[in-house]
């Protein structure tokens, strides 16, 4: 292959561009990236802020729940829900309260609404993880729910409960979301 003058100019420009590219890439290495530029940092800050805010907002509910005052916890939760309807944390707390009260189908429904809004509640390492309690709920409720549905196929409530428990089982099993 023969190179003419135009080729030589292009090759020179290419070499200059490549060197400039390397130089600028080297400048942007993570060591020289300030913390605030990092999206991970921003995300972590937002996550911490959310944890703090939720703890503060729902503290009357969690206190009542920890003291075993389930009816009061439900009332307090309703009060918060008026201001923040549709918040995943509210559904998860409702699920937990109902679970403690022994209302297992209601608990499953609450957990599902929460998890569909935020998968964090089923993650092992999340600060608000309810994975263990959900695993126990599924283990306890699934066999009777299957039997009940087998005995009465036409009952839509039984069908929905079984479907809810299967959804929770699938989320516990992992896989891509």
């Amino acid at each position: 292959m023969k190179f003419d003058r135009f080729d030589k100019i292009l090759i020179s420009l290419l070499a200059i561009a490549a060197v400039a590219l390397l130089a600028y890439t080297a400048q942007s290495f993570p060591a020289k990236t300030t913390a605030i530029e990092s999206r991970s940092m921003e995300r972590e800050l937002a996550s911490q802020a959310r944890v703090g805010l939720l703890e503060k907002l729902y503290s009357p509910v969690t206190v009542a729940l920890q003291n075993g005052q389930y009816q009061e916890a439900l009332l307090k939760l309703e009060e918060v829900n008026i201001r923040y309807p549709g918040e995943a944390h509210g559904f998860i707390l409702k699920g937990e309260i109902l679970y403690r009260m022994g209302v297992l189908d209601g608990a499953a429904a609450g957990f599902i609404r929460g998890i569909k809004l935020s998968g964090d509640y089923i993650d092992k390492n999340s600060p608000f993880s309810k994975r263990d309690i959900i695993a126990i709920l599924v283990e306890k409720s699934l066999p009777p729910a299957q039997t009940a549905y087998k005995n009465s196929h036409s009952n839509p409530a039984l069908k929905e409960n079984l479907s809810n428990l299967n959804y929770l089982k699938s989320r516990l099993a992992g896989g891509c979301e």
């Binding site: 993570p30 999206r39 991970s40 995300r43 992992g174």
Partner: peptide, 16 residues
């Protein structure tokens, strides 16, 4: 080199 615009999940299935 993990440029600053690259994002990596810390939760969910991408964290696995």
């Amino acid at each position: 080199i993990s440029p600053s615009f690259l994002i990596a999940s810390e939760k969910g299935s991408s964290a696995q």
